[in-house]
Simulated assay, not measured.
Amino acid sequence: MHRLPRTLLCSVILSACLVLRAGAADLAPPPAAVEPAGAVPPAWSFRFVPYGWLIALNGTQTVRGRSAKVNASFPDIVEKSDTLVALMGNFEARRGPFALYGDLVWTRIGFESENVRTRAPAPGITTTVGRSLGLDIEMAILEVGAAYEVARSGPLALDVLGGVRYWHQKADLSFESARTVEVGDLELAGGLAFARSGSVDWLDPVIGARVRYAVAPGHELFLRGDVGGFGVGSTFSWQAVGGYGFDFGTYNGVTVSGVIGYRALSVDYAQGEGRRRYAFDMIQHGPILGVSLRW
């Protein structure tokens, strides 16, 4: 008679222990949730590329209504130019698919008469001028904009981009003053007549696309094209750049790469009429060589 209550009591105690254990488990704090790797915002990365652009020029330069045909390769400019100074660099900041970029080209180039030929004057100039002896151009081209990666397939990526390209120029065109007619608006010095443009500035909107292809780790091919102007600044401009980048190594967290390629930039700009006319209808093209610093 006494064994049954004792067995029942043990069963009740065992059940109570199980209930308390389950309740304690319910009261314990839940394990910390692990965020998927894709939810972490990507960090910014930066790239700076100082480079040299071995420029050749083909086209027409007009200063104060006097036009000159320019046809000079880079070796011509190096061999025969009395002035050749250049400063160039490219910068890009990228976060995930989004990037901001900037590019600066500044040059001062002097051409001798072998690469400059007088052309017919602009409308409003009734007589021509003597044989052109030289052309000096100081030019700055600053481009800023944004790019966005719209498609990716394995090692291949496609970016669309948009921005603005700012141009600043000064040009001096010189002639033999003894053979020059209508020199009233020209400057005379040392037997030469100079047509000086002063500062000329304009701003072009730009849209384009860029393709990047990772050939192998640390090796990338790139191709970029854009168009701009649309009558806002210049009548029209276009650019094509292609190249190859290859890593040398990483030093103190900075990846150093070499960059080789080719760049062509064309613009057709004009302002004013008659003796106030300034025009720059030119293709600038040539190899590019640079060093990329990425961190």
Rank of each mutant, 00 (worst) to 15 (best):
L54G: 14
W202I: 08
P123L: 01
E114Y: 10
S197E: 07
S132E: 09
I207V: 15
S11E: 04
I260Q: 05
D76V: 03
D281I: 01
F246L: 03
T255K: 15
I55H: 06
V259K: 04
F91R: 11
A147G: 15
E187M: 00
V232Q: 05
T127C: 06
F46A: 07
D172Q: 08
R6K: 11
V19W: 12
G231N: 07
A68Y: 10
Q271D: 10
R6M: 05
A68Q: 08
I77T: 06
F48N: 01
A195I: 09
Y244C: 02
A151Q: 05
P97S: 12
W167F: 15
E273Y: 13
I55V: 14
M139G: 14
F46E: 02
Y269P: 03
G89L: 05
A151I: 00
A157M: 08
E149A: 01
R263H: 13
L84F: 15
V259H: 00
P5K: 11
I125E: 08
I77C: 00
S199L: 07
A270D: 06
L142G: 14
Y101G: 01
K170S: 12
W167V: 03
Q271K: 15
D76G: 04
N90Q: 08
P31R: 10
I137C: 03
V70I: 14
N58H: 14
R95F: 01
D281E: 09
N71Q: 11
P31L: 03
T255N: 13
P205S: 05
E112V: 09
A72I: 09
A28H: 10
P155H: 09
A25I: 06
T118H: 02
